[in-house]
């Protein structure tokens, strides 16, 4: 019990520190952005040739710069990020993918999908609280109805009768999206070990979400880690081939992932 209290306090302190950084950070970067974009526009003006530009008229939606079309790219950790992308890549091809393909060979897809639904059902507290924090009350209600139906009729969430029979779909939200909705910028891009692409805001926002994850309360923590590793392998087994397929298309894999992550998060925040 004591151990848990200590962990809890540490979590709160970390959160406080990180949130402070998060709010101070945009102010500090503003100046850098301004300088950079200033330099960029001069460059663009030099390169401009009349006549060549006409085809781009009306397609300014891509010209706002940045990975998700917002501002210039600010990537102070690009060296570390590229390194971690390579590490995660090796982790995927050497560990995760073989484990998931082996597991897929001995486990029918129906069962794996069922397990996937079980873990999705466990994500209810995160989705519920963040929907509420974003004042999406109706969606929070739908989430609750889903949880009640799927936990009982759906046998602990292994089935999803709420979606199959009642057309109630989940509304995925996390604390990163909640912060985004309230105008917190994404900060710089940050590739997390094993977890993959993230950014300052979303990485910090993982902390409060952890407290809403039922797995956090599983003791001993080795068991909790084991369960979440199993969840990851199960998920990967249902999406084999997608990673390689994306990678094949990328000219610069790290930049592609960074851009795709930021674009995807921006869309999710808008929803």
């Amino acid at each position: 019990m004591d151990r848990r209290k200590v962990r809890f306090c540490c979590g709160i302190v970390c959160m406080f520190l990180l949130v402070t950084v998060l709010f101070l950070f945009p102010a500090a970067t503003q100046a850098v952005y301004a300088q950079q974009s200033g330099a960029m526009t001069t460059g663009a003006r030099q390169a401009e040739e009349p006549g060549e530009q006409s085809d781009f008229e009306g397609f300014a939606e891509f010209d706002t710069g940045g990975d998700s079309g917002q501002g210039e790219v600010f990537d102070p950790l690009s060296g570390y990020n590229r390194f971690m992308t390579r590490v995660n890549d090796k982790f995927y091809f050497w560990v995760l993918k073989p484990a998931a393909s082996g597991y897929a060979k001995v486990t029918p897809a129906v069962m794996r999908r069922s397990v996937g639904r079980f873990f999705k059902n466990l994500g209810y507290p995160v989705r519920f609280v963040n929907n509420l924090l974003q004042l999406k009350v109706k969606r929070a209600g739908v989430e609750t109805a889903r949880f009640l139906v799927n936990t009982t009729v759906g046998v602990a969430g292994f089935a999803d009768p709420a979606e199959a029979w009642m057309d109630l779909e989940a509304y995925p939200e996390d604390f990163g999206q909640t912060l985004g909705v309230y105008g917190v910028g994404s900060g710089f891009h940050l590739v997390l070990p094993l977890m993959g692409p993230s950014n300052l805001r979303d990485a910090v926002a993982r902390v409060p979400d952890v407290f809403l994850d039922p797995l956090y309360y599983v003791e001993p923590s080795e068991l909790a880690i084991g369960i979440s590793a199993y969840n990851r392998v199960n998920y990967t087994s249902l999406h084999l081939g997608e990673y390689a397929e994306l990678k094949k298309d990328a000219v610069d894999w790290y930049v592609f992932l960074r851009s795709a992550y930021e674009q995807n998060r921006r869309k999710k925040i808008e929803k």
Partner: peptide
């Protein structure tokens, strides 16, 4: 695809390169 634009993704990569 899932909010990720083909043109935007390529532009990010080409800008970087």
């Amino acid at each position: 695809v899932n909010g990720v634009s083909i043109v935007q993704s390529y532009r990010s990569q080409f800008n970087q390169i």
